[in-house]
Design a protein around this nucleic acid. Structure first.
Length: 725
DNA sequence: AATCCCTTTATTTTT
DNA sequence: TAAAGGGATT
């Protein structure tokens, strides 16, 4: 049997992991050590050498993107495609299981999935019903509580609500649950919890899956939470071999319930776990790697791992202390422009990484003004847009009239004379009779009870419209159904009336949705027992799509450190390394959270392949006021000999006097040798220009001047003989 | 139903 | 600062 294609591309440690004897294995895989390759090759190895079939595999990850990549690579190695392999995200696989066993799970056959926004709205509505003051009890906080409880596997009955806080939270939790039940909807956490419960309560199902899944593989294990761990433990029965890959140093989601301890716990729960380490890094230069190692060594409680590379030393890490955030952006962009030109780098080879989203703005403005294409990751995703969710809500109602979350969303969108009072009356009726909003509304119309004739009319018209459209579109294919709903509900006209410049975008989004439906119908493999509409709605909730179109253009990449995990770039700018910003002020108090920030810095550093530039601003406009920043402790924790400081202040009188920029003239001081950034200067040969920046100090200081006539030039300050104009 | 004005708040995010 | 959400106003 020839397995050279599985084995040859691997190094010794990777090979040892891939070919390890059956049994449990924990692979501690450092950044850039080829963990996805190990995982996929292991899966293929199990089938091609150990006699497993794809049917015996369960492979789990966190994101749709990672799952798709994993599936693709495994299928490629096995030479099969479209197999019945269970490869997917925790939520996707749970969803699949619940669709197959909806009866055992106590769900309606066409149950729908609430995304976070739907969930928040529903929690809020429940709170109104219970008359819980949302000033004292912020909705988001309660939503967080509910999800945290579910992630820990706890139902309201499991909670001890003796103290007022837990008592109040639990009351809302319980009411929220019953609202979900009445509507036939589940939230993301519920997908996990309900799956665990079905398996616990139906041993025949559990036995079936345990007999099937002889080999369980899990990626990014450090990101698992309590319920996901339970889920795995259930599905991977005593007969199964479990192969997990993770990196405790890249655990950056503790704040949303991820438990790094699960790595340790796995080792003690699964006897004879073989622990393997992947420490050879194929991504970064020795300099970058050494910096990363030194930084992460400051954390305690590590499982221990030290990355090494055969790569060359590479360039030192550049550090730039900017005057303020604009100067920071200016520096980053000039530097990246120079590299794109000189080294013929693609713009997409360059990433600007920051701690928080708000920091992207300054960079966007600077990039925009120089007409450099860029792409910001994150933000609103396609299926999360308001007009898209409105359209989907009409379909949800067609699918299931009791979906109160959907009804509430569209009952007066577009406005059709059903105001707050009417909706409130429906809610009260629904609550009193413990029925869905749809049933309550129907009752009100039939009994003509308690509402003005006008309200009854409007409401009756709405109910009739939905019923009629449902009947008329039942035979249509999904895309036609979608189009009919968008048009006949009046949504398209409503969206088109939006007299902001966004109306056009929104209309295009609606068309895009119809196209998405058409493509889905053609391409998607639909689970047994699910109709196309249900499948599409689930797909929309589980896979919210990309944030921005236009990804094909060669763009500079802007994203948070969190979203950069798993990616790599030849050039990385790590910006805003100031105390209070990174590490964030909200994380510096507790040692545990500070360590997570440090891991985040580690993730950032290890994204870079060839060049890493770190910047911070000595002054930054934050929440409308000027804040003075000091360099992040993470900068000090890097080995100084690997860091090359690019000096922007070129005062000869010593450090500490920063030349101010534009906005704050009163505060700017100019040293004898120096010029303000932005100052107009005169050169004997090049004429007049504007000072853009400078590097170095003393006699070696170089000044960059953008001359009106000849453009930007670097000049040695000592010889330039610049005169202020 | 739309508009205005006030208050509040400002990490990280996938499913 | 600025954006978003809520309440009151028109």
């Amino acid at each position: 049997m020839d397995v050279s294609d599985l084995i040859d591309p691997l190094n010794t440690a990777q090979r040892e992991a891939v070919t390890s004897p059956l049994g449990h294995a924990l692979v501690l895989a450092g950044a850039g050590s080829g963990k996805t390759r190990v995982l996929t090759h292991r899966a293929a190895w199990l089938v091609r050498v150990e006699g497993a079939t794809p049917y015996n595999l369960l492979a789990v990850t966190f994101t749709n993107k990672a799952a798709a990549e994993m599936r693709g690579r495994i299928e490629q190695l096995l030479g099969v495609s479209g197999s019945g392999m269970w490869v997917g995200t925790f939520h996707g696989l749970s969803h699949r299981l619940l669709r197959l066993h909806w009866q055992e799970a106590g769900l309606p056959q066409s149950f729908q999935i609430l995304d976070s926004e739907d969930q928040r709205r529903l929690v809020k509505r429940v709170m109104r019903d219970l008359e819980v003051d949302d000033n004292r009890w912020p909705v988001r906080q309660i939503q967080g509580f509910i999800n945290a409880r579910k992630d820990a596997g706890e139902r309201p009955d499991d909670l001890d609500g003796n103290d007022p806080y837990t008592g109040q939270m639990t009351q809302v939790y319980a009411a929220y649950e019953s609202a979900c039940r009445n509507s036939g909807v589940v939230d993301f956490a519920e997908l996990m919890l309900r799956t665990v419960e079905v398996l616990q309560n139906h041993l025949e199902l559990l036995g079936h899956y345990r007999r099937r899944f002889r080999h369980v593989l899990v990626d990014e294990f450090q990101d698992t939470n309590g319920i996901q761990y339970q889920w795995l433990k259930l599905l991977a029965g005593p007969e199964a071999d479990v192969f997990i890959v993770g990196d405790d140093d890249q655990s950056i989601y503790g704040w949303r319930g991820a438990r790094v301890e699960n790595l340790q716990r796995f080792r003690s729960d699964y006897a004879n776990t073989q622990v393997l380490r992947l420490e050879q890094n194929y991504r970064s230069t020795a300099t970058i790697l050494e910096a990363a190692n030194t930084l992460i060594a400051k954390n305690s409680d590590r499982l221990g791992k030290k990355l090494w590379t055969e790569d060359e030393q590479g360039e030192p890490i550049a550090l730039y202390a900017a005057f303020n955030e604009q100067d920071e952006a200016r520096f980053v962009i000039e530097r990246l422009m120079a590299w794109v030109e000189e080294q013929e780098l693609a713009r997409s080879d360059i990433a600007i990484l920051y701690r928080s989203n708000a920091q992207s703005r300054t960079f966007e403005e600077a990039l925009l003004s120089r007409r450099i294409p860029y792409r910001v990751y994150g933000g609103l995703r396609f299926f999360e847009r308001a007009e898209i969710k409105d359209a989907l809500s009409y379909l949800r109602l067609i699918n299931n009239r009791d979906d109160s979350a959907a009804l509430e969303r569209v009952i007066n969108t577009p406005t059709r004379g059903i105001g707050n009072r009417t909706i409130e009356a429906i809610r009260i009726a629904a609550r009193d009779q413990n029925v869905s909003l749809w049933v309550a509304a129907k009752g009100l119309v039939e009994n003509r009870g308690g509402l003005s004739a006008r309200a009854i009319n409007s409401l009756g018209a709405f109910l009739g419209l939905i019923d009629r459209l449902a009947a008329e579109t039942v035979e249509m294919d999904l895309a036609d159904q979608m189009e009919t709903m968008i048009d006949r509900s009046g949504l398209r006209a409503h969206v088109g009336k939006d007299r902001s410049e966004r109306a056009q975008d929104k209309l295009e989004n609606l068309d895009e949705l119809i196209t998405a439906a058409r493509n889905f119908e053609q391409d998607a493999v639909i689970e047994e027992g699910m109709d196309t509409l249900t499948a599409f709605l689930s797909h929309a909730a589980l896979e919210a799509g990309e944030g921005q179109a236009g990804a094909w253009e060669d763009c500079v990449q802007l994203m948070t450190l969190h979203s950069a995990k798993g990616l790599e770039f030849p050039v990385v700018f790590l910006v805003g390394l100031e105390e209070g910003l990174f590490p964030h002020r909200m994380s510096v108090e507790e040692p545990g959270r500070l360590e997570e920030e440090r891991r985040l810095a580690y993730v950032g550093v290890t994204r870079a392949r060839q060049r890493l530039v770190i910047t911070y601003a000595e002054r930054r406009r934050l929440h409308g006021r000027d804040e003075f920043g000091i360099a992040s402790r993470f900068i000090r924790e890097l080995p100084p000999e690997l860091v090359d400081e690019v000096r922007a202040r070129f005062s000869v009188t010593g450090p500490g006097i920063a030349a101010g920029m534009g906005q704050d003239k009163a505060d700017s001081s100019v040293s004898e040798a120096g010029f303000d950034l932005g100052a107009r200067v005169q050169h004997s040969r090049f004429g007049e220009g504007v000072v853009l920046g400078c590097e170095g100090n003393g006699p070696n200081a170089r000044i960059q001047v953008n001359f009106d006539a000849v453009g930007s030039k670097w000049l040695v300050a000592a010889y330039a003989n610049l005169e202020r104009v």
